[in-house]
Design a protein around this nucleic acid. Structure first.
Length: 225
DNA sequence: GCGACAG
DNA sequence: ATCTTGTCGC
């Protein structure tokens, strides 16, 4: 089975290494990436995808896919151990190394402050932001029913992220710093990468590729190579 | 003890 | 996450 106690202990140690202040290494990034995973063969194969977009144009300039045997089932709180191996493999295939990465999942908005965005950022030493579609832990005041409504995501008295209405009539986004970025800066970069959809472009592109959405299949057909 | 629980 | 058609609302 899985040594969950050991993995949780590992998270507590690695969380100590997370840098929660701005250490971006850039003024204006040239490339921003989105990473996400999908599955094949009843989940036995994990398919990781990384979409590198130019900034500020937000156009896809490169993407890489890595397929790895799934080593762990999905266990709330231990998602990074299931997804990081494939994500790191895809990262190593990149020709264009992005200066900032958006990860589909939580950053420090995690029981032990090491969500997949933080764990991945630490493994490849790159600034990361966690953009999740639902909540893992923490609480927040009711969100006003208007676009742009924002509330801090709290755990006890500590702010671990933000809950933000990115689009009308859509569930909010749970945004938290992953690594080498402050929570304020993380939120500002998510806002700067929005293009009228619920999810920011880097995340949307990565999801389209990882899950083989029609949008990506079409893009692929139009771009020979 | 009971419920909650990223993807 | 993944399996999937139509359908409701802007």
């Amino acid at each position: 089975m899985v040594d969950t106690a050991g993995l949780r202990a590992e998270q507590i140690e690695k969380a100590q290494q997370i840098v929660s202040s701005d250490d971006l290494g850039f003024t204006e990034p040239q490339w921003i990436a989105g990473v996400d995973v999908g599955f094949e063969e009843q989940g036995t194969i994990t398919r990781a995808a990384i979409a590198v977009l130019s900034y500020p144009a937000l156009e896809l300039v490169e993407y890489q896919i890595a397929r790895i045997p799934t080593s762990l089932p999905y266990i709330p709180g231990l998602l990074s151990f299931r997804e990081c191996p494939a994500l790191v493999a895809a990262w190593q295939q990149l020709k264009h190394k992005p200066q900032l990465v958006f990860v589909d999942g939580q950053g420090i908005a995690h029981p032990r402050r090491l969500g997949v965005a933080s764990h991945f950022g630490l493994l490849v030493n790159v600034p990361t932001i966690g953009v999740a579609k639902s909540r893992l832990c923490g609480s927040h005041p009711p969100l006003a029913d208007v676009v742009g409504a924002l509330e801090p995501l709290m755990d006890k008295s500590e702010q671990i992220g933000w809950v933000w209405n990115s689009k009308p009539r859509c569930k909010p986004l749970y945004i938290s710093l992953g690594h080498r970025i402050s929570q304020e800066t993380a939120l500002s970069w998510v806002k700067r990468c929005m293009r009228s959809y619920r999810l920011p472009e880097p995340t949307r592109s990565a999801d389209a590729i990882a899950s083989r959405r029609p949008a990506f299949i079409r893009w692929q057909a139009e771009h020979p190579s």
